[in-house]
Simulated scan of single mutants.
Amino acid sequence: MTGSNRIRTLLVLAVLLLVVVGTVPIAVAAQSESRSGGTVVVEEGETVDELEAFAGTVVIEGTVTGDVSVVAGSVQIDGAVGGDVEAVAGSVQIAGAVDGDVETAAGSVEITDGATIGGDLSAGAGSVLIDGTLEGDAKVGAETIQLGDDASIAGDLRYGGSLEGNTDAVAGEITEDSSIGIDLTGTAVPIASWLFAAYVLALNLLLGAALLVLFPRFSDGVADWVATDPLRIGLTGFGLLVAIPVLLVAMAITIVGIPFSVVGAFGFALLVWIGIVYGRYAVAAWLLSLVDVENRWLALVLGLVAGAVLAQLPIVGGLLNLLVLLLGLGALGFGLYAHRQRVREQGSRNESSPDGPTAD
């Protein structure tokens, strides 16, 4: 291996390491620090002063002595929080103890049996289940609000939505207020969605930049394949998207194949991620070429930003991004196959040479 190849390999490994850091679990090591990642965890037995997190999943199994402020896909509190909790997420579940107030906007909120909240609860969600103990007042706006058999609310309950279950759990007054749901969820949930989209966009830009820097000719080839034969490329992407999971499931049927299936699943996830990035880049490069603009970096940024915006649109955005994924995955498959063929042909030429294979 030549010196340039060694440097290239090291660069590939370093960039992939940086990219993967954004998606693997991150334990909170500092006493008070903002954290982001695929998963942020306060481990059981660990204590931190405060926690500010932006992640796909936030899990608190240990102790946070101060406040918790979170924007995430899901939030799980099994440990103890000494201060207040502010959470904007797809789902929030509190199974531990929170000494202060809880303010949350989420798709679903669950205060489980055995959970305790020492202050007030303000929640706006699609559904809310309260089956724990609340020492203060509750202000809840949701489509469905369920009070469990073990629920206990020491103060008043103001709600907007459909209230069901054990209303005897409320020691104070119960007041219906239809404006609560609008006040709590009207702005927080969309903001959380866009913030999470910005985080994903940053990871995609990092991966895309690595691909363009390390594999410029291959990346140009991906864009060319999508532009010249999108139908065949898209059908190839669809075939890969269906066939690989089927193959992995078939491998997992046997005990010997289970480890290979697990490793293959991670590889397939990375392949899909690269396909998404390449697909958005290739479509943007093709559109720019229609106006005589050829700039791979502009295509990368425009493609990824447009894809992130489309992802926020219901139904239509998802369908368009699926088509782009099929194009990117198909072009990636074509590129890898073509590269394999070139390597085999080069090997055949070296073997047929009178002097044998030539060292690099």
Score class of each variant (00 low, 15 high):
L271E: 09
G83K: 10
D113A: 13
L184Y: 06
G333T: 07
A202I: 11
L235I: 02
G118V: 01
Q312M: 02
P354N: 10
A210V: 10
L327W: 11
L11G: 15
Y281M: 06
T2W: 03
L207C: 03
G264S: 02
S74C: 03
E50P: 01
V305R: 08
V42T: 10
R344A: 12
A14T: 12
A30Y: 14
A192N: 14
I182T: 15
G186L: 01
A192M: 05
A285M: 06
T116F: 00
L206T: 14
V75A: 05
I94Q: 08
W297H: 06
L205V: 08
V92F: 04
R342N: 08
I7G: 01
G56V: 08
F238I: 01
V85E: 08
T358P: 02
Q76A: 15
A359R: 03
G141W: 00
L163Q: 10
E345K: 12
L10P: 00
V170I: 11
V170G: 11
E86C: 03
F196A: 11
V263R: 04
D220S: 09
V213T: 15
V226N: 07
D220R: 09
L184Q: 14
A306V: 15
G172P: 11
T9C: 02
P354Q: 02
R342H: 13
L129E: 10
R35L: 08
W273A: 07
D99E: 10
L205A: 04
E351S: 12
G330N: 12
E164T: 10
S289Q: 11
G328I: 03
N5P: 00
V109I: 04
I77L: 07
D120N: 14
Y278T: 10
L231E: 09
L13G: 06
T236D: 02
G221W: 11
G62S: 01
V88G: 09
V189R: 15
D224A: 10
G114F: 00
Y159M: 09
V343F: 07
E103Y: 07
T65M: 07
L205H: 05
V222W: 07
T104A: 14
I94H: 03
L326H: 14
I315M: 07
L287A: 10
L10E: 03
G172W: 13
G79E: 04
V40L: 09
W194L: 00
P190I: 00
S122L: 02
E351W: 14
I60N: 11
V226Q: 02
F196I: 09
T358Q: 07
I255V: 12
D67A: 02
A105F: 00
I274E: 03
A338D: 13
E61T: 07
R296S: 12
G90L: 01
L332Q: 14
T236I: 00
